Amino acid sequence: MIQFPNAKINLGLQLVAKRPDGFHNLVSCFLPVGWTDALEILPAQGEASFTLSGLPVPGAPTANLCWKAYELLRRDFELPAIQMHLHKVIPMGAGLGGGSADAAFTLKLLNQQFNLNLAEDALENYARQLGSDCAFFIKNQTVLALEKGDVFEPIGLNLKGWHLLLVYPSLAISTAEAYAGVSPRFPEKSLKTLLAQDISTWKNEVVNDFEASLFPKYPVLSNLKAQLYQMGAVYASMSGSGSTMYGLFQTAPEWPLPFPEDYSVWQGVL
C-alpha cells in the first residue's frame, strides 16, 4: 500500500510566548500543498525493515520519524513485521513539514492497512508524540494552528484557484537555529483577523516572525522574497522556520523560472 505525504506552508507565523517547557506558543495558518514524498508499507516475510531513496536523509533509519511512528503504534498493537520504503522528494530544513507529514502518513497507513480502527482524534494524539506539527497532517486540512502548532481551530479561508510557487534555495535551516534568534511578543492584531482581510493587504500585514532574524543572516531569503514580488506575486513569505519562500499569484508565473539550477521549485494551483 502506498500513499503520498504532502507538504504544508504557513500563511503568517506569530511567535507569541515562550513556554515553561522550552517550546514556543505560536499562531499560524497551516495550508496543505501538493509537493509530496512517496511512502510504501508492505507486510514483511522476515524482520521489519525501513529503506530510503530520493533525497539523502541524515541519521540512522531507526531515527527516522516513519520508523518511530511504527514503533509507537507497536507498543499498543500487535503489528506484524513490515517493509517500509520512503522516497524523499520534499526538501528538509525547508519549513514545509515534510518529515512530520511522513510520520503522520505512516500512522494513517498502518491504521488502514492493519485495521486498527483508530479514529482521527486518536491518530492525532499519537502524532503529537512524534513532533509538534505532525498532528496537522492527520486531517490534512487548512487550519489555524495554536500553542506548539498542535492545537487547531477551523478558519474560513478559501484560496481555491490561486497559483502557488514554492522555491527552496538549497539551504537547510534547523528548527533549533531558527528559534535561537526569535523574541516572542503578543501581536497587536490577531492572525485570524489579518487573514480575513483582502489578500492585497497581506503583503504589509501578514508576517512570518522568523524572517526578522533569518533574513539578515541569509540574504538569499530576502532577495528571493523580493524576486517573487517582482514576478507578480500578490503575497510572498517564508514558510515555517525556513528556508522555502513561496508566492501566491493570480495567474501562473511564466516559465522558464529565473532561479539557479540547484534550487528546488514546485508550482501548482490551490
Score class of each variant (00 low, 15 high):
Gly54Phe: 08
Gly54Trp: 11
Gly54Leu: 04
Gly54Ser: 08
Leu55Tyr: 09
Leu55Lys: 06
Leu55Phe: 11
Pro56Asn: 01
Pro56Tyr: 06
Pro56Arg: 00
Val57Gln: 07
Val57Trp: 07
Val57Arg: 01
Pro58Gln: 06
Pro58Arg: 02
Pro58Tyr: 03
Gly59Phe: 00
Gly59Tyr: 09
Gly59Trp: 00
Ala60Trp: 02
Ala60Asp: 11
Pro61Gln: 04
Pro61Phe: 13
Pro61Asp: 10
Thr62His: 11
Thr62Glu: 14
Thr62Ala: 12
Thr62Tyr: 08
Ala63Gly: 03
Ala63Thr: 14
Ala63Asn: 12
Asn64Ala: 07
Leu65His: 05
Leu65Met: 10
Leu65Phe: 10
Leu65Lys: 02
Leu65Cys: 08
Trp67Glu: 10
Trp67Ala: 14
Ala69Glu: 11
Ala69Lys: 01
Ala69Thr: 08
Glu71Val: 08
Glu71Arg: 11
Leu72Thr: 02
Leu72Tyr: 00
Leu72Val: 04
Leu72Ser: 10
Leu73Gly: 03
Leu73Asp: 07
Arg74Lys: 15
Arg74Ala: 15
Arg74Glu: 14
Arg75Lys: 14
Arg75Ser: 11
Arg75Leu: 15
Arg75Asp: 13
Asp76Tyr: 12
Phe77His: 14
Phe77Asp: 05
Phe77Leu: 08
Leu79Glu: 12
Leu79Lys: 03
Pro80Ser: 12
Pro80Phe: 14
Ala81Asn: 15
Ala81Gln: 14
Ala81Glu: 14
Ala81Lys: 06
Ala81Thr: 13
Ile82Gln: 00
Ile82Leu: 12
Ile82His: 05
Gln83Arg: 10
Gln83Phe: 09
Met84Arg: 00
Met84Tyr: 04
Met84Ala: 15
Met84Gln: 05
Met84Cys: 15
Met84Asp: 00
His85Tyr: 14
His85Leu: 13
Leu86Phe: 11
Leu86Gln: 04
Leu86Asp: 06
His87Gly: 02
Lys88Thr: 13
Lys88Pro: 02
Val89His: 12
Val89Tyr: 03
Val89Asn: 13
Val89Thr: 11
Val89Gln: 12
Val89Leu: 09
Ile90Pro: 03
Pro91Gln: 06
Pro91Phe: 04
Pro91Gly: 05
Pro91His: 07
Met92Glu: 03
Met92Gly: 07
Met92Asp: 01
Gly93Asn: 05
Gly93Pro: 02
Gly93Glu: 09
Gly93His: 04
Ala94Arg: 01
Gly95Phe: 06
Gly95Pro: 08
Leu96Ile: 12
Gly97Arg: 00
Gly97Lys: 00
Gly98Tyr: 12
Ser100Gly: 07
Ser100Phe: 12
Ala101Gly: 14
Asp102Arg: 04
Asp102Val: 13
Asp102Ala: 08
Ala103Trp: 07
Ala103Met: 04
Ala104Cys: 03
Ala104Leu: 06
Ala104Thr: 02
Ala104Lys: 00
Ala104Pro: 02
Ala104Val: 05
Phe105Ala: 08
Phe105Asp: 06
Phe105Gln: 08
Phe105Cys: 09
Leu107Trp: 10
Leu107Ser: 05
Leu107Asp: 07
Lys108Ser: 15
Lys108Ala: 13
Leu109Ala: 09
Leu109Cys: 04
Leu110Cys: 08
Leu110Glu: 02
Leu110Ile: 13
Leu110Lys: 01
Leu110Gln: 03
Asn111His: 02
Asn111Thr: 03
Asn111Pro: 12
Gln112Cys: 13
Gln112Glu: 15
Gln113Val: 05
Gln113Cys: 10
Phe114Lys: 00
